[in-house]
């Protein structure tokens, strides 16, 4: 039973719990504490283990970090002259991500505005459920759609010989990141204080003026965070871009060029790189690079959200 304390002059014997109950509770609280710390343990473990595999090559004489970051020559299996330059891969990631955001941001923000201001509660609930389902489609299914449906559409309408390219990957990634932008963006719009909205309505503004002059400026930090989270997802996405962007390691000159991204490169080559080889270590180093990029993007988004919240 629960312990009770009393402060009378004649203190009755304090009800006690069995030793087992007390120790059981202590054990469970220890478990809870350990689980609470687990997130820190895991994030450090991820950093430690991918860095551990990558470290030998990073500190070897034959490897140059400048070449790794700024050379476009990626010939990991060349017999005579092995070169590990990831600039073309970074450019691929950048091209696909930028195109995806150009497509997804207007739709995402527009969708968030529509959901929060221009539709009734019924339609809103329905649309939110559909967007949630859209977000649940596995990336390999998106990749498959890019590989089959989208590439055929692109070949038909643009006349390009190969349908798996930046455009294809960009569209697929846009479809994948729109749900995140919509849901976080809607939260940001909802967080605008009611007094702002009421003040504007009292001046006789229309809905559109309300959105354009009051809500969007007031929610700009939250919307920026939503876009950053979409960027984070687009950079980290693997299977969809692996299947939809083609496999050409090159700096793209147009949206109809095939590229390969940092993530797709790891997925495509790790299976063939013998464990412990230089190639294998360089792929892990690419992983460290990816980890750093996505971490920065996500932390920036978090800081912006937190900053926006603190200002209120």
């Amino acid at each position: 039973m629960a312990p009770t304390s009393s402060t009378g002059a004649a203190v009755p014997p304090r009800p006690t719990r069995s030793r087992r109950a007390v120790w059981g509770e202590r054990g469970i609280e220890l478990l809870i504490y350990a689980s609470g710390v687990s997130a820190i343990v895991f994030i450090l473990a991820i950093l430690f283990f991918i860095f551990r595999e990558a470290a030998p090559v990073l500190f070897s004489d034959r490897f140059s970090l400048t070449q790794f970051l700024f050379s476009t020559e990626w010939y990991p299996t060349s017999v005579s002259n092995v070169r590990y330059g990831t600039l073309a891969l970074s450019a691929g990631t950048l091209a696909v991500t930028v195109l995806a955001m150009v497509l997804a941001v207007p739709f995402g923000v527009g969708g968030a505005v529509f959901l929060s201001q221009f539709c009734g509660p019924r339609l809103r609930e329905t649309l939110k459920i559909i967007i949630e389902l859209l977000a649940a489609i596995p990336s390999v299914v998106w990749g498959f759609i890019g590989l089959t449906v989208m590439s055929r559409l692109i070949v038909t309408y643009t006349g390009t010989p190969v349908g798996v390219n930046v455009l294809n990957g960009g569209i697929i990634l846009a479809l994948m990141s729109v749900p995140i932008i919509v849901s976080i963006g809607e939260d940001a719009l909802k967080a605008v204080p009611d007094s702002y909205v009421e003040a504007a309505l009292a001046l006789g503004v229309t809905r559109w003026q309300l959105v354009f002059r009051v809500l969007l400026p007031a929610a700009r930090h939250g919307l920026l965070a939503a876009v950053l989270l979409g960027v984070g997802r687009a950079i980290g996405e693997t299977m969809a871009v692996l299947m939809a962007t083609g496999h050409a390691v090159q700096i793209p000159h147009g949206i109809l060029d095939s590229v390969r991204t940092l993530t797709a490169n790891i997925a495509a080559e790790l299976g063939e790189a013998p464990a412990g080889s230089e190639h294998y270590q360089v792929l892990f180093l690419t992983g460290v690079l990816l980890f750093a990029i996505t971490m920065l993007v996500n932390l920036a988004a978090d800081l912006i959200i937190r900053g926006a919240r603190a200002r209120k």
Binding site: F42, I43, R52, I266, D302
Partner: peptide, 23 residues
């Protein structure tokens, strides 16, 4: 801890694969 949870959620799936392989 909160920061770790957010970072963990943002780790790309292929980096999880590298971690799984290494660890």
């Amino acid at each position: 801890i909160n920061l770790a949870v957010i970072s963990l959620a943002g780790v790309p799936s292929i980096v999880h694969a590298l971690f799984g392989l290494g660890a």
